[in-house]
Design a protein around this nucleic acid. Structure first.
Ligand SMILES: [Mn+2]
Ligand SMILES: [Mn+2]
Ligand SMILES: [Zn+2]
Ligand SMILES: [Zn+2]
Lengths: 153, 153
DNA sequence: ACCTAGATGATAATTATTATTAAAAAGGAG
DNA sequence: CTCCTTTTTAATAATAATTATCATCTAGGT
């Protein structure tokens, strides 16, 4: 499990995980490394496109799929919105603002304890995610249900 | 917060929550009342359509939106799959099979305890949901079968 | 019986994502 | 470096869930 940081050697990382080094992948990785938060495919496209006009969204989807399989990012999917990609691949959880969609990381000091019900016998747990929904301070200040656009992080 | 059960008086319930009583809503509610599990719009359509040929999916979307706002169902959205509607509106959580998408209810004996990080100050929590991902027994058994078949080739 | 707000259903539009595939390019061998 | 094979890219089409439109219909009240 790799953790991206601003001093990551991008071509080396790509080689290490067994991917060919292409300008597209370097550009996307470079974006992710400096981005704070949880980017969508479109976020990536909007950011990288100006300095890399040829880049296609297909390539971003493709690349993010590879990065996910190789543990460089973790895909998070909420509701009907676009998938977001988390460069924080440590196990952690999210506050989700119902109004603007912003995600805020948090960590559980210890795993929640629960007993599996009888009809779940044989279920093999691989992962869990606690999703806490509510209203972020910005959206609360702005007053209810007003501008529910933009500033998704 | 209403809880549907098999002896629910459907027209009365619709009136009580302030909705007009239409055959479409009665049919959808009747389906939900007898359905075990977490139905998608298409599940509802496939089930109700044979005995109600005119019914449109638009109407199901519309109706489920109303039911959700009135607390009769709770919409659950996972990944890129279709929304599911839970007639169990008590606070509870789900095991999610990564392979077949099946949902199994479970309950937390006590709420998970966690401290909000500094960058979440002012976040107002309204709800939370623990999503436990893994492999259900059926899919695990099927996986073994497939693995065995691949070995013999 | 009549009126009107609200509901329905056919259809189009939107949006995120996946599939297809010809052309381009990476990386390795010689 | 040159050639070759395999992967990658990017344009485009296809898919799928959901939402928007809107003409028509109807539930429920007068
Ligand atoms: Mn995160
Ligand atoms: Mn449930
Ligand atoms: Zn917000
Ligand atoms: Zn399963």
């Amino acid at each position: 499990m790799h953790n991206l940081s601003t001093d990551t050697n991008i071509p080396k990382l790509l080689k290490d995980v067994g991917l060919r080094v292409t300008p597209q992948r370097e550009a996307i990785l470079n974006f992710l490394i400096h981005y704070e938060g949880h980017a969508t495919v479109d976020d990536i496209y909007q950011a990288v496109h100006p300095t890399f006009p040829g880049l296609s969204v297909s390539t971003i989807y493709n690349t993010m799929k590879h990065f996910g399989e190789l543990g460089l990012v973790k895909e998070i999917t909420f509701g009907d919105a676009a998938s977001r990609f988390d460069v924080n691949v440590q196990p952690h959880h999210h506050l989700v603002c119902k109004h603007c969609g912003k995600l805020i990381d948090f960590y559980l000091p210890q795993p929640p304890n629960f007993a599996l019900p009888p009809d779940a016998s044989g279920f093999e747990i691989e992962d869990y995610h606690l999703e806490v929904k509510g209203t972020c301070r910005e959206c609360r200040d702005k007053g209810r249900d007003e501008a529910r656009n933009e500033q998704t992080q």
